[in-house]
Amino acid sequence: MKVSMTVNGKGVERDVEPRMLLVHFLREELDMTGTKIGCDTSQCGACTVHLDGKALKSCTMLAVQADGADITTIEGLANGDLHVMQESFWENHGLQCGYCTPGMIMSTTALVQDNPNMSEGEIRHQLEGNLCRCTGYHNIVKAVQQASEKMGGGD
């Protein structure tokens, strides 16, 4: 089937099997391997991208379902150098092996855009869709708190 969508601001069109998952479309068809796969069951969140501005687990959508959509991946998150969330993860040591990180950053970016005033407890709760095995989440929470302040929260 033909699908076309905008990925990181660029129009793309491919002919794919209906069963192709969006995450495989990004990774295999477009060679955008920043988006990761960490589970089969929509738990880990490593595959999180933005679809029309909303955080999506791209392993839980078919490429054909995303036909016509506007997708942003980790590769296209920053306008220029680094997004505030990327900077905060770096600054706060919010990553170790880095595998969950693209999904973490895409997920938390969307969360903070929706609500820049989350408490620490809310951040911890809202991270339920993303698993990290290295950091114990401690510095991820700090990174999100710092990015929240920079993205307009705290008032």
Partner: peptide, 16 residues
């Protein structure tokens, strides 16, 4: 699967 094996999530921990 991760539906059944409980990998800790962020809300299980306080700030260390």
């Amino acid at each position: 699967s991760m539906m059944d094996y409980a990998v800790p999530r962020a809300d299980m921990f306080p700030n260390f």
